[in-house]
Design a protein around this nucleic acid. Structure first.
Length: 283
DNA sequence: AGCCAGGTTTGTA
DNA sequence: TACAAACATGGC
């Protein structure tokens, strides 16, 4: 077992996991058990550190997964210099948020599930998907299930996906799985520049601009993407004095302004608006 | 109880 | 192009 120590100034485990970028994690001992495809780690804050415990063979994987080589200090400092008060405040409260390097395929399936859905329910659906079709494994003495392969999902009928709670998204998930099983190569999309990548993702049945942006950002790690969902729309209207209503135009407004910082600033703002704003009002 | 959630598809003008 | 209804489910 490997134990990775990392300075906690720009790595708050709770904020990084609960800011809505991933769905397969659960409270465990001093922190969380966090899963990615077929791997799992135990991650928590203690003293001045964020600590990641994982199997020896997975050390490099999780160092990359938690984006440990990136300079978050400079990202944070650019957010703090912003003329927009809400961005300064969001960055300060979400200073410990890091963008994870997630698996492209798992991210694509997961964010198709996320559309017009809430985070607790998204987590439940993905958990049932894994329990039913994933492989049972153990980390420490905790049982977990791997994220199902496209091949395993492609073998199910529509009713299976409806039964685990996907609702009208059942057919989106089934068709994507079948397409991948028949040779659709998601990983090859990585050759495309950001704009072309988004255009390609939107061609997938059940993927619109918002889901494409999330996959572009979280799976393909293009930080010049700025997903606009219902929460970001609220921030835009309330805190940026926005007048646009088309979400694609709102996204462009932000990427034009923030460039390669877009994805990071988007996470600060999203997390603040969805979670932290209410907490600070309550005191 | 009823609105809403990390929206997309389909249909219409 | 722009807008609106339909879509399943359950969180809160």
């Amino acid at each position: 077992m490997k134990k990775i120590f990392f300075d906690n100034t720009y790595f708050n485990v709770k904020d990084t996991l609960e800011c809505g970028q991933l769905f397969r994690f659960k409270p465990y001992k001093k922190g969380y058990l966090c899963c990615s495809v077929d791997k799992c780690c135990y991650v928590y804050n203690e003293d001045d550190f964020a600590i990641i415990e994982c199997e020896d063979a997975d050390k490099a994987y999780f160092e990359n997964y938690f984006d440990l080589s990136r300079d978050y200090k400079s990202i944070f400092e650019r957010a703090e210099k912003s003329e927009f008060e809400v961005l300064k405040k969001s960055a300060n409260q979400g200073k410990g948020v890091r963008l994870l390097n997630q698996d492209k395929t798992e991210t694509l399936f997961s964010f198709i599930v996320s559309q017009n859905n809430n985070i607790p329910r998204i987590k439940g659906i993905i958990e049932r998907l894994s329990e039913n079709l994933g492989e049972e494994k153990y980390f420490f003495d905790e049982k977990y299930y791997t994220f199902p392969t496209a091949s395993k999902m492609a073998a199910q009928n529509k009713e299976f996906f409806e039964k685990i709670g996907l609702g009208y998204r059942a057919e989106y998930i089934r068709r994507l799985a079948v397409d991948i099983e028949n040779g659709l190569d998601i990983l090859a999309f990585n050759e495309l520049p950001t704009e072309k990548l988004r255009e390609r993702l939107v061609k997938i049945y059940g993927v619109g601009p918002k889901v494409a942006d999330c996959v572009t950002l979280f799976g393909f790690r293009r930080s010049d993407a700025f997903p606009v969902d219902t929460w970001i729309e609220k921030v835009y209207l309330e805190n940026f004095n926005g007048t646009l209503t088309d979400r694609k135009k709102i996204s462009k407004y932000f990427t034009d302004m923030f460039g390669e910082d877009s994805g990071y600033f988007q996470q600060y703002l999203f997390y603040y608006k969805r979670t932290l704003e209410k907490e600070s009002v309550k005191g």
